[in-house]
Amino acid sequence: MLKFLISRSASLLPQGAIGHLGWLRGAIGGGLAILASGLVAIVLLGTNSAALPVLVAPLGASAVLVFAVPASPLAQPRSVIGGNLLSAAIGLTLGHAIGEPMLAAGLAVGIAIAAMSVTRCLHPPGGACALLCALGAAGPETWGWAYLWPIAMNVLALSAAGWFYNNLTGHPWPHHAAVPAAPPTASGFAYTHEDLEAVLADWNEVLDVDIDDLDAIYQALYRRVASRHSVRHR
């Protein structure tokens, strides 16, 4: 039904709004996901919903990644769930242990970045979760471990909404790159997956794209150019 409504509005909206990952698709998905996450938290928290936050601010940043760039390695379920919860736990731990908000916040964000990187669940909003929880635990409100529950409800509900909405609108999530079985070859030239890994290692930079997606893009580009070249020489 959602695909039908979007396709019916195609003639009334600019291509940037609906084509591929247009802003309209992401805006609708993100808004609905935040609403659903809040409602789920209210229901599950019950009488505690007045004492605990129903929605936490880092969830908004997670929604941008999940619905606007669902193919990003930073937007996958492992990162959304693991990155936020791990960082929140680090923030609460350091906030309680140190007691000084600014020092606890700085250490929490730094350690959260390291922990997310090592556990392969790097998620930028996780840094915000670490900061939020460190300030809450070290501040006058002295956040306890109960504050981890609404955060967990938020990220799980958002992930469920992301899975449903992204797949419904034609963007499989979790994302899996569609890489052909073998790389293209021409004039004795060929590359391997290991070659791509070696080039990325030489660059010594972290790119916000999965190596399998790079492989698929390169192969699709090669085939397009090769096809055009063959047509010109017939």
Rank of each mutant, 00 (worst) to 15 (best):
F4N: 09
A10Y: 05
S11N: 13
L12K: 10
L13S: 05
P14K: 03
G16P: 06
G19H: 12
G19V: 09
G19D: 14
H20L: 09
H20G: 13
H20I: 09
L21M: 08
G22F: 04
W23N: 05
I28A: 15
A33P: 01
S37I: 03
A41P: 05
A41T: 15
I42Q: 12
I42D: 10
L44R: 09
L45T: 06
T47R: 14
T47K: 13
N48C: 11
N48V: 12
N48A: 14
V54S: 05
V56N: 12
A57D: 03
A57N: 08
G60R: 02
G60F: 02
G60M: 06
S62N: 02
A63Q: 04
F67C: 03
F67N: 03
A71C: 04
S72N: 02
P73T: 04
P73L: 08
P77A: 01
S79E: 02
I81F: 12
G82F: 03
A89P: 11
I90Y: 05
G91L: 05
L92Y: 03
G95L: 13
H96F: 12
M102E: 09
M102H: 10
L103S: 03
A105D: 02
A105V: 00
A105L: 05
I111Q: 12
I111P: 14
I113F: 11
A115V: 15
M116D: 01
V118P: 01
V118H: 02
T119V: 10
C121K: 03
L122W: 07
H123W: 02
G126Q: 00
C129L: 05
L132M: 07
A134Y: 02
P140Q: 13
E141W: 09
W143F: 15
G144D: 13
W145E: 10
W145K: 05
A152E: 11
M153I: 15
N154W: 01
V155F: 00
L156K: 07
A157L: 02
L158E: 00
S159I: 00
A161T: 06
F164K: 06
N167G: 00
G170F: 07
G170H: 04
P174H: 00
V179N: 15
V179T: 15
P184N: 04
T185D: 08
S187F: 06
G188F: 10
F189G: 07
A190V: 11
T192E: 10
E194N: 13
A201Q: 14
L207I: 08
D208N: 13
D210M: 09
D210L: 07
D212H: 12
Y218V: 12
Q219C: 13
Q219A: 14
A220H: 12
L221V: 10
V225W: 05
A226V: 07
S227T: 10
R228Y: 09
R228T: 14
V231M: 06
R232W: 04
R232L: 09
